Computed example of a mutant assay.
Amino acid sequence: MQNDLLKDKVIIVTGAFGGIGLAIAKACLNAGAQVLLHGRSERNLADALGYLDGGDRVEPFVGDVTRDNFATDLVEATVRRFGRINGIVNNAAYVVSSNVNDTTLALFREVLEVNSLAPFSIIQSALPHLAETKGAVVNIGSVNAYAGEPGLLAYSVSKGALMTLTRNLGDSLHRDFGIRVNQLNVGWVLTEKEQERKVGHGLPADWYTLISPMYAPARRLLDPMEVANSAVLWLSDSLGPVSGQAVELEQHPIIGRNPEKNLDALDIE
């Protein structure tokens, strides 16, 4: 879908060599932006660049978000290539199964480093540039931020921390610098990694067609590009001064839902 919502804006997208991040990068390009495309390793870089077909409007950047000086290097690379920063999408995430029994402190710290601290560091490093352009930040969160699944303990807590960061900075940075900070709490999305994960759990290759309507009333999961289109809207100037908000992208209410207790509520797992 072509539009001009981000015409001539420079957007950083982390975790963007695949999945939701790559879809967001594509949507930003379609909306007229220039994109700093970040990924952890070069393994999927060639495929990502081929899919985007963005020419000189795309600049790749490879690096681990937890390494020292990562945020500074990312920001400097963006400004060196494009001259400014209008928006940041903090999408890079560490999704790992863990529960109260097997979550070590080392694992917990690693998840928090990737999912909570790295986004803060990137925003902090980019602050002067975002202030200059009156830019926008979109943090990609999860509906797990509200409590989460027992088997996603560390991940859920990290997304809750990210949501508080969003609300806190969305207030202070908007008031002091004119920078909007918002978050998309994403529900169940059919990405290539989710497909690999579920098949790895022993589910059939077409598992996503068998999900109960209790979990997917539309009889399908969200598509990455549907998340991406929402991210573009929140990066744009279309929503005016809205800041400090966490918006759920899900098919049903997250808070207060009390579904019928019948066989349709059974999970396919």
Rank of each mutant, 00 (worst) to 15 (best):
S238A: 13
T191N: 02
L222K: 04
S172W: 09
W207C: 05
R167K: 15
P204D: 01
S158Q: 08
L130W: 06
V227C: 07
R220L: 08
E226F: 00
L112R: 08
G200S: 12
S125G: 11
K159P: 02
A147K: 15
V186P: 03
S158C: 06
P217G: 04
A147W: 14
G187E: 09
M214W: 11
I179G: 03
G135Y: 04
M225P: 03
V137N: 05
V181E: 10
A131P: 06
Q183I: 07
A216E: 05
G202N: 08
L165N: 04
D176H: 12
D171L: 15
M163F: 11
P224Y: 06
N229V: 09
T164R: 09
L203I: 08
E196G: 07
I211A: 07
G141Q: 05
N115W: 08
N182T: 15
G187I: 00
L153I: 12
L169T: 07
L169S: 07
A126N: 06
N185H: 09
G135P: 02
A231P: 03
K193H: 13
G202M: 04
R167H: 09
A161D: 05
R175N: 15
L153M: 11
Y146E: 06
E132M: 12
I179Y: 10
A136K: 11
Q124V: 13
W188I: 10
S116Y: 14
V181F: 05
Y155F: 09
V186N: 02
S116K: 06
R180T: 01
N168V: 15
A216L: 00
Q195Y: 14
L222Q: 05
L203E: 04
L169F: 10
I122D: 03
G178I: 01
L152M: 13
S212W: 04
E132C: 15
I211K: 07
S121P: 06
G141A: 10
L152T: 14
L190G: 08
S172C: 06
S116W: 14
A161H: 07
Y208C: 13
G178C: 05
T191D: 01
L152Y: 14
A218R: 09
V143C: 01
V143D: 00
D223A: 13
P213I: 01
N182C: 05
K159T: 02
R219I: 00
M214T: 15
V181K: 07
H129Q: 14
L169R: 02
A154K: 00
I179F: 10
D176W: 11
L239F: 10
K193Q: 14
E132V: 09
L233Q: 12
A231E: 02
G202W: 00
L203N: 04
S212L: 03
L112D: 12
K198E: 12
P128L: 09
A231G: 03
V137M: 07
I123Y: 05
V189P: 02
R219H: 14
Y215R: 11
V181N: 07
G178W: 02
Q195L: 15
H129E: 12
G160R: 03
T191C: 00
A147E: 13
R175V: 10
N229P: 06
N139D: 03
N185Q: 08
L162Q: 05
D171V: 15
L222R: 06
